[in-house]
């Protein structure tokens, strides 16, 4: 009730007929121009890597040493690497893995982190301590070394079960996602500790709102800011973490051209063929920016206080 009341006061437009919070959120989202553009951009990026191979029919692995290190041209819009492989085709092929790893790992970490953080933030008893202990435990498994250790230890087993790329994909998503939820959990918990004592929550409580309602309607929307930022950073971090594993020889097989991997391969040629590094770097950047603005838009859409 109080949520609606606050909204009515703050936003006269909400008095329109047929009002529902979700429709209102959508309306607010549409008002956030960069967010709309970003959503379109991200969809385009996904469409490009999914449908790309049907349009751009150049093989990602064909080697043509005569055509090595060429800059962008009609035959190779993104140029070629030193073996004469088409960078566009490689980015389309690798983009599927990079985007999937980035988004999947982000979703895992945001979902798990918010859930655990919210529970720990609301609980005043042993559950809170237990969940915090769990967070501490996962934090103290230092991320990259643990990742390396897990892949080092489980690589062969998963490879046997799911094939070299499938096994590594599952492992990378679970491990990167499963190892990045702790900051989200800590941030959410800290927000909850502070928000649950705020007047508007007290008011809701006094009006008889159940704890679930308090969380979902009142506390969570106000705690989402850091979560969305963390989610965005996680996408970039997951794409980079994947390439960091390649750096150490523990990620996907060396011939899998993920964005991070292409960037890694290009690094030694930075002064000879900058185009090689430019395109994968730009792709990661665009994905990150798009997801970031989508996040910003979502927050504005869900944030009842903000007047649009």
């Amino acid at each position: 009730m109080s949520f609606m009341a606050g909204l009515t006061l703050a936003s006269p437009s909400a008095e329109r007929r047929g009002y529902s919070p979700w429709r209102e959120a959508w309306r607010r989202y549409r008002r956030h121009r960069p967010a709309v553009v970003s959503a379109v951009l991200l969809l385009l990026l996904i469409a490009a890597v999914v449908l790309g191979p049907f349009i751009w029919r150049v093989s990602a692995s064909d080697i043509d040493v005569v055509a090595g290190m060429q800059g962008p041209s009609l035959a190779h819009p993104f140029g070629t690497d030193d073996l004469g492989q088409d960078i566009l085709a490689r980015m389309i092929y690798g983009g599927r893995i990079s985007l999937a790893v980035g988004l999947a790992a982000m979703l895992v970490s945001v979902f798990v982190g918010t859930l655990i953080g919210a529970l720990a933030g609301m609980s005043r008893g042993p559950l809170g301590y237990a969940l915090m202990w769990l967070t501490d435990l996962f934090l103290s498994l230092p991320q990259l070394p643990l990742l390396l250790m897990l892949i080092y230890l489980f690589r062969d087993g998963l490879k046997a079960a799911f094939g070299p790329e499938g096994g590594i994909f599952i492992l990378i998503v679970l491990v990167i996602g499963g190892l990045r939820w702790m900051p989200v959990a800590r941030l959410v918990r800290a927000q909850f500790l502070s928000l649950r004592e705020k007047e508007f929550v007290e008011a809701a409580r006094a009006l008889g709102a159940s704890p679930t309602r308090q969380v979902i309607r009142h506390i969570l929307p106000n705690a989402l800011g850091p979560v969305i930022i963390a989610g965005t950073i996680d996408v970039a971090a997951a794409i980079i973490a994947e390439s960091t594993l390649s750096f150490l020889g523990l990620g996907f097989p060396p011939d899998t051209p993920t964005w991070g991997r292409i960037l890694y391969d290009a690094k030694d040629f930075l002064d000879i063929g900058p185009h090689w590094a430019l395109f994968p770097g730009a792709a990661i950047f665009i994905a990150v920016v798009a997801i970031n603005f989508i996040g910003d838009g979502l927050r504005d859409a869900l944030d009842a206080r903000k007047v649009i």
Binding site: S61, D62, I63, V65, D82, L83, P254, D255
Partner: peptide, 17 residues
């Protein structure tokens, strides 16, 4: 792990395929 070796691997792999 070594740039030249990974590239040799790629060239040999392609011919094998």
């Amino acid at each position: 792990i070594n740039g030249p070796r990974q590239k040799t691997q790629a060239i040999v792999k392609q011919a094998c395929q």
